[in-house]
């Protein structure tokens, strides 16, 4: 954050993306969604690949929308920093909370973690 002081008078410069390019991006997004759908239909065949695959595709769509449609690729780096901070924090906390619950060995309802460290009755 130390060099946040850079004072530049860059007035909003519009991204140079053309309508044609936007349409292509829209097409790409649709195709990825279709691929995801097909993947989920073949979940048995794909096995362990399925979930990481779906998450990666979803991440690709996320990045495309954020970078191209929300213009982060062209806009001030500060926006990217601020949004990324919130997004990464949210992701970390989500993972932490879900893992803490999965680890909870005392849950009498949901069952414990695989390899439950504490045996109980």
């Amino acid at each position: 954050m130390a060099d946040m002081n850079a004072v530049h008078d860059a007035h909003d410069e519009h991204p140079t993306t053309t309508i044609r390019e936007y349409l292509i991006i829209g097409l790409v997004l649709s195709v990825i969604t279709a691929v995801e759908l097909v993947m989920s239909l073949y979940e048995d065949e794909l096995g362990v690949v399925l979930i990481p695959g779906l998450l990666i595709f979803s991440a690709i769509k996320f990045v495309i929308v954020v970078a191209m449609f929300m213009h982060l690729k062209f806009d001030s780096i500060r926006f990217t920093q601020i949004f990324a901070f919130g997004f990464v924090l949210a992701t970390c906390l989500l993972i932490a909370v879900v893992v803490l619950f999965a680890y909870d060995a005392t849950d009498a309802i949901g069952g414990g973690f695989i390899g439950d460290p504490i045996e109980h009755h």
């Binding site: 601020i82 919130g86 997004f87 924090l89 949210a90 906390l93 989500l94």
Partner: peptide, 10 residues
């Protein structure tokens, strides 16, 4: 929007 990330994250 950064704040909203935490909202939907929760």
């Amino acid at each position: 929007l950064a704040s909203e990330c935490l909202f939907f994250g929760s």
